[in-house]
């Protein structure tokens, strides 16, 4: 395939993925906006008003980065895992497998679809957050970088989950029992400085902690972790997951007999 043909193939997958989640926006875009609004009303406004400032920020403002990133993480993951598994389930993945589209472009296309949904949901949630909170962005470049890198990372994770999934139950197990606990324990609602020392150290092995804190640094200028270390960990995870996802695709695991 020429470069133009490859670009057309990639664009086709991306457009298809984009149309898939936009067509069902009531299921994909609206729920995170409502959930985030509820978080702000309950945790930010009602309970948060009883909590003192953290790192110099109102509790309402402090939880904004975590809530935005949580929406990005869950939606990027959910988009790819449901889309790719659905393609496997309906066997429509064969449309791609019989075509000359290289595997790395198939992977890039699905991941870009997840990133697109993560970004759109992230923007919607940010708009909701701006209604409840007022903050000035500390570093737009860092915020955007972490935002996009996190979406890429969890899109890749969703892809790997979908490759191994053999039933619809399998695509909900990881989000329910791994992703959600790690996200909630990743410092969305608190600073790890508030934890006992043992739990502080334990929290440091949670990769989501680094993402939330680097994003929080980008938005508010405060963080529990070193930013360079955080970015290094995110990029390391992306490289590892991309290589593994491509390996699975090249081997045809879960999709070829």
């Amino acid at each position: 395939m020429t470069f133009t043909e490859k670009f057309n193939a990639f664009k086709t997958i991306l457009i298809k993925e984009y149309l898939r989640f936009i067509r069902i926006w009531i299921q994909t875009i609206l729920p995170p906006a409502i959930t985030t609004a509820l978080y702000f009303v309950i945790f930010g406004n009602l309970i948060g008003s009883q909590i003192s400032d953290i790192d110099g920020y109102r509790y309402m403002d402090y939880i904004v980065p975590g809530l935005i990133l949580m929406a990005v993480i869950t939606n990027a993951y959910a988009n790819v895992v449901s889309s790719f598994y659905s393609a496997k389930f309906q066997k429509s993945i064969e449309e791609l497998l019989v075509s000359p589209t290289p595997n790395y472009l198939i992977l890039a296309g699905f991941v870009s679809g997840g990133v697109a949904r993560g970004i759109i949901v992230g923007i919607v949630v940010t708009l909701v957050a701006m209604y409840f909170s007022s903050f000035e962005i500390h570093s737009f470049t860092l915020s955007l970088s972490v935002f996009v890198l996190t979406a890429i990372l969890f899109s890749l994770a969703g892809f790997i989950n979908a490759v191994y999934a053999n039933s619809f139950d399998d695509i909900t197990i990881i989000p329910t029992f791994v992703l959600t606990p790690l996200t909630y324990l990743g410092g969305i609602f608190y600073s790890i400085d508030m934890l006992p020392e043992f739990w502080q150290k334990l929290s440091l092995i949670n990769p989501i902690l680094y993402m939330i804190n680097s994003f929080r640094y980008g938005l508010l200028g405060v963080s529990d972790t070193d930013i360079v270390t955080a970015l290094f960990i995110i990029i390391l995870f992306i490289a590892g997951l991309f290589s593994y996802a491509l390996f699975l695709l090249n081997k045809g695991i879960g999709i070829k007999q």
Binding site: T4, T12, I13, S92, T101
Partner: peptide, 28 residues
């Protein structure tokens, strides 16, 4: 390839299925 089992996305419009398939072969 025309496989034995229906293997297109059942929730996509007919024309879109064809346009997407062409795209996978690099056709604009």
């Amino acid at each position: 390839l025309v496989p034995q089992e229906f293997n297109f996305n059942q929730f996509e419009p007919v024309q879109e299925i064809l346009i997407n398939q062409a795209g996978y072969y690099g056709i604009d």
